[in-house]
């Protein structure tokens, strides 16, 4: 039961698709919550690719990285949601186009 059961290309295409969806969401959505969610989608797309690659070559590295991404994503969500709360409190909106005090 070694190796990948489905063709690698399919998994990678799916990962690419998911990644692009996340990227488009990140670029197009204005709500910070949705942007964070898109980010999660992108992370998961990458994680999928890692898992698939790990299975393909029968090595544990892919899964290790997956675990790493998982924890990073969790940390990121924690910090990100904290920031979201602050943004909501300061700007009374979650629209990131409104929160642009750092412009030059």
């Amino acid at each position: 039961m070694s190796g990948l059961q489905i063709p690698m290309e399919h998994v990678l295409a799916l990962a690419g698709l998911l990644f692009s969806c996340g990227l488009m969401g990140l670029m197009l959505r204005r709500n910070i919550i949705f942007m964070l969610m898109s980010l999660e989608v992108m992370l998961n797309a990458v994680a999928l690719a890692f898992v698939a690659a790990g299975a393909q070559w029968g090595q544990a590295d892919g899964q290790i990285i997956f675990l790493l991404i998982l924890s990073v994503a969790a940390a990121e969500v924690a910090v990100g949601l904290g920031l979201v709360l602050q943004i909501q409190r300061r700007f009374k909106t979650l629209d990131m186009d409104q929160a642009r005090r750092l412009r030059g």
């Binding site: 990227l23 990140l26 670029m27 197009l28 959505r29 204005r30 910070i32 942007m35 990131m96 186009d97 929160a99 642009r100 005090r101 750092l102 412009r103 030059g104």
Partner: peptide, 18 residues
């Protein structure tokens, strides 16, 4: 001119990074 690039818009930064 360079300052104009720093719009403060998160999405603009993300897009330019992409």
């Amino acid at each position: 001119r360079l300052c104009a690039l720093q719009t403060g818009q998160l999405r603009w930064y993300a897009t330019s990074m992409v």
